[in-house]
Design a protein around this nucleic acid. Structure first.
Lengths: 181, 181
DNA sequence: ACCTGAACACCGTTCAAGT
DNA sequence: ACCTGAACACCGTTCAAGT
């Protein structure tokens, strides 16, 4: 990175790359500034706060979500959202921490609402995907530290079974309510 | 609080009270130490790290979950878990951050697994409750700061509709699979 | 057994001033 | 428009030493 001039976009890009490399606990304004060969205070010309920077990063993460062809079923959309959240280290947690601020993140719900009739169900499914993905990434981290209580923990095997069970619940629900109407 | 002697239990109790009063971002080891009228380093005689302290706090939060009478239905159990997570400020986030370490938190899944046949479905339901509760508490905080993008945001009204939609999905699933067997 | 004192290596943020 | 320099008010953690 040249010591030259930056803007919101380039800072966001490098923040996302740094997140993926070091994880959320080590993504500090000071470290990001060092990576940009700039003083920490320079970042506050582009973003009002770290929160605002993380919101921009969250929007980037969610931009990976593929557009839904209307009329397809729920499962591939849900998988697409999960994969976007898991594509970068601690991605789910970043999205979760900025989701309440509503700065972005409508993209995921919009995708789900086009394939699920009921909006409340679509939001609930998104909350399941977010919770699940966050726990998956946290377990990845705990495992890399070696902080597991029980031995012989098969990593992603049963995790995917839990995810599929969640998807099944919501697809079963929408097919039942479809029959009702 | 007297300046006298402490143990793990008393420190955990006051940490939980402090969490409820100031929230997770302001729950620091230094502030907790000040509340206990003790030097920050004193806390490290009782807990190896802040993580370990938070795990003890998470266990406390989950201890509020009522025992399930076997044979009752899913909804009241799910509500009981949600209420335990929402009983203290940022409680859901604390549980979420220590859940991966498996230090406690089996209590919630155990309760759900006694009323739901499939273990993967029980875990998925717990992940939905955790994700949902975390977002609810984050929105509470964002609202108290006044950092909402859109105006006139009805607070807990539609939030509960989303929760009920999630519960309905999992109860519908288990009743369908019951009929199948 | 439980705590103090002092230090180490960090944080996010503000703000005058530079170019 | 974009950044520097310096400061403010904090962090978690370690470790020798005290009682």
């Amino acid at each position: 990175m040249a010591p030259g001039r930056h803007d919101r976009d380039s800072v966001t890009t490098l923040a996302l790359a740094l997140l993926d490399r070091v994880g959320l606990p080590d993504l500090s304004m000071r470290r990001l500034a060092a990576e940009l060969e700039v003083q920490p205070s320079a970042l506050y010309w582009h973003f009002a706060s770290k929160q605002e920077l993380l919101a921009a990063v969250a929007d980037r993460i969610l931009s990976r979500i593929p557009e839904p062809d209307p009329g397809t079923d729920v499962a591939p959309i849900a998988v697409g959202i999960r994969d976007a959240l898991l594509a970068y280290r601690d991605g789910a947690e970043v999205v979760m921490s900025t989701y309440a601020l509503r700065l972005g993140a409508r993209r995921a719900q919009d995708a789900l609402q086009t394939v699920i009739g009921d909006d409340a169900s679509a939001d609930a499914l998104f909350e399941f995907i977010l919770g699940h993905s966050t726990l998956v990434q946290q377990r990845m981290h705990a495992q890399s530290i070696g902080a597991t209580t029980d031995a012989a923990d098969d990593p992603t095997a049963e995790l995917d079974a839990v995810f599929r069970a969640g998807i099944r619940a919501f697809t079963t629900l929408s097919s039942v309510t479809d029959q009702r109407s």
